[in-house]
Design a protein around this nucleic acid. Structure first.
Length: 586
RNA sequence: GGUCCCGUGGUGUAGCCUGGCCAAACACGCGGCCCUGUCAAGGCCGAGAACGCCGGUUCGAAUCCGGUCGGGACCGCCA
């Protein structure tokens, strides 16, 4: 077998005229004319037409009539320009064809469970069950290549910027970020467990104490949380941490990286620096912390206009401390009742109570002329425009409006599909409210607050800004990070504000805090998600398309059948006993 | 934990709302035969699904109802 060094089917062209070749690949298609037989021979690089001529090579021709789709074959022959008029401009190799002299069937193939082609996609279940065949489809092969290329571009770039790649353990310890851990039982320490890293957060900070100064890693991360179209339980981050840096250093590093990726992969020049926006502004105007700025719809607060309103839905929301938000739909007066009903369904699907609109829904008769005018002016609505309104608790109203904004843009084709709207969400805020209404950290407890803002932390803790940032592109959060606290006094202050017991602090963050007593440099970092970057570059809206062997929404691997039961002896050795679920299904 | 969509031959769809004309249609694929310039090759012939599963309503269910399993989108969750 010498196929490894033989020319690639997909890379042949006019310059290979009269080249004798020894080709290896899969039969993509067979066109049998009784006399001539054509096959398209495919390898990773593409496909080329092979001709079997009964008069020139009778044996090969006879063998070729037995060929079927996806047979693995070796073809010896000569590359030649196609006869005038029979070139195929739709094929990359369409100027040439290979006239076969010998054919060897290396392996036959059963009829595949779905066609190996890009035109029609079988459903997700079938694709995942036979992922090895799904990846054979040119589109998926391109995704694998793209991802590999992105990884290389990243490594080259980070190397040029004098970062070093350091690998951190996969068997590690539960970390301070908020997701559920995947646990791995320890055989040598029965009853103890390793956790798979949610991110190498603490380790990369420790590497700063080690004096690495510029660290990166293409790091696999694990989070046992529910899946989404852009979320898998295991995913890959470009984990970055650097010493003696400020935000601008992080921003320009990442802007440089994205510029390089977009230039090299897509030939697109990005405008830098990227736009920046305060998180609160983003939530108000766009209803999300990862706004898609490729369309201009904006949300407005109309609460003040309705402060004295008698309209029940608004009255009760405002009285309960909630908000009323409105959005103008340009030219939206032409929306059919059916469209509006569907928007209401979207709102309810997001957990909202509903959706009102002006003019038209029954609420306008409960609004005064001043209120109506006020809403129109607050949302900037004109005579042809419709205004959509949501009244709810602030966070819920934002979510609902954010989704409505997305849906309206999609339905009315307002999205400028060719744009790349990068955005830094910065600054953000140090604290957040937990379910019980108590102060909690918005990022993690090492996030550095704005020094000056600490003067009013007692009175208005939620207004304390943090040196934290997210990088957003076209409605996707590509990554986030922060500058970290390096001053022990500041760190103590934050822990104290969070009301964390000393015991908890020592248990969860002890290693880092001890390390910090030995001379810690100011440092900060960021972690862009590589899966999502590849999604963007690959033009797909699904993370499964950029992961070779992804899991389903219920976290199964349909190909391998994972997760699965294990041999009782294994459990025995690990000293684990499985307790049946409280409500056994029978 | 919740809401919504989907599940029909190997694949993709139609049929389902408005039950009987559906042991189910179309295209691709598959098998056979014919065909020397096609490239989604073409022509002719043929095989292949009781409609995810269980139960109910009904004289009658792919079609209606309930449950269940599986896939997907979203909210919560997760940066």
């Amino acid at each position: 077998m010498s196929g490894f060094r033989s020319p690639h089917c997909g890379s042949l062209g006019a310059s290979d005229d009269r080249l004798e070749v020894d080709l290896y690949g899969w039969v993509a298609r067979r066109r049998d004319h009784g006399g001539l037989i054509f096959i398209d021979l495919r390898d990773r690089w593409g496909a080329v037409q092979v001709v079997f001529n009964p008069t020139k090579a009778p044996e090969a021709h006879a063998a070729a009539s037995e060929l079927r789709a996806e047979y693995v074959v070796r073809v010896k022959g000569v590359v030649g320009r196609r006869p005038a008029g029979s070139e195929n401009p739709r094929m990359a190799t369409g100027e040439v064809e290979v006239t076969a002299s010998e054919l060897e069937v290396i392996n036959k193939s059963e009829t595949t469970p779905f066609p190996i082609e890009d035109q029609e996609e079988p459903d997700e279940k079938t694709r995942l069950e036979h992922r090895y065949l799904d990846l054979r489809r040119p589109r998926m092969t391109r995704m694998l290549e793209l991802r590999s290329r992105v990884n290389k571009l990243i490594r080259d770039y980070m190397d040029r910027e004098e970062f070093i790649e350091v690998e951190t353990p996969i068997l590690t310890r539960s970390s301070p970020s908020g997701a559920r851990d995947f646990l791995v039982p320890s055989r040598l320490h029965p009853g103890s467990f390793y956790a798979l890293p949610q991110a190498p957060q603490m380790l990369k900070q420790l590497l700063m104490v080690s004096g690495v100064q510029r660290y990166y890693q293409i790091a696999r991360c694990f989070r046992d949380e529910n899946l989404r179209a852009d979320r898998q339980p295991e995913f890959t981050q470009l984990d970055v941490e650097m010493s003696f840096c400020d935000e601008e250093d992080v921003f320009s590093l990442i802007e440089g990286l994205f510029s390089e990726l977009w230039r090299e992969v897509l030939g697109v020049e990005l405008k830098t620096p990227f736009e920046r926006m305060d998180i609160k502004e983003s939530l108000l105007r766009f209803g999300t912390d990862k706004p898609d700025l490729r369309y201009d719809l904006e949300i407005a607060d109309v609460g003040s206009v309705l402060a004295g309103t008698k309209a029940q839905i608004f009255r009760s929301a405002l009285d309960a401390g909630g908000v009323v938000r409105g959005m103008r739909v340009p030219g939206g007066r032409d929306l059919a009742r059916r469209d509006l009903d569907e928007l209401v369904t979207v709102a309810k699907g997001a957990g909202g109570k509903g959706l009102a609109w002006l003019p038209g829904s029954s609420i306008d008769k409960f609004l005064s002329a001043e209120e109506l005018a006020g809403i129109m002016s607050a949302t900037g609505a004109g005579d042809d425009d419709l205004v959509l309104l949501v009244a709810d608790r602030r966070r819920k109203a934002e979510t609902v409006m954010g989704l409505i904004r997305q849906e309206v843009a999609r339905r009315r084709h307002l999205i400028r599909e060719d744009e790349w709207k990068f955005l830094w969400i910065n600054p953000t805020y140090l604290f957040d409210e937990d379910d019980a209404g108590k102060l909690t950290y918005a990022h993690h407890p090492f996030t550095r607050p704005f020094e000056d803002d600490m003067s009013f932390v007692e009175d208005r803790p939620y207004d304390v800004r943090a040196h934290a940032y997210d990088i957003v592109l076209n409605g996707y959060e590509l990554g986030g990070g922060s500058l970290r606290i390096y001053d022990p006094t500041m760190q103590e202050r934050v822990f104290q504000l969070l009301g964390m017991p000393l015991e908890t602090i020592r248990d969860r963050f002890g290693t880092l805090l001890r390390a910090f007593t030995y001379g810690v440099p100011p440092h900060g970092g960021i972690a862009p998600g590589i899966d999502r970057i590849v999604m963007m570059l690959g033009g797909t809206d699904n993370i499964r398309d950029v992961i070779a062997f992804p899991k389903t929404q219920s976290m199964s691997d349909l190909m391998l059948g994972a997760p699965s039961g294990v041999d009782p002896a294994q459990l025995e050795e690990l000293r684990i006993r499985v307790v049946p679920p409280p409500n056994p299904s029978t």
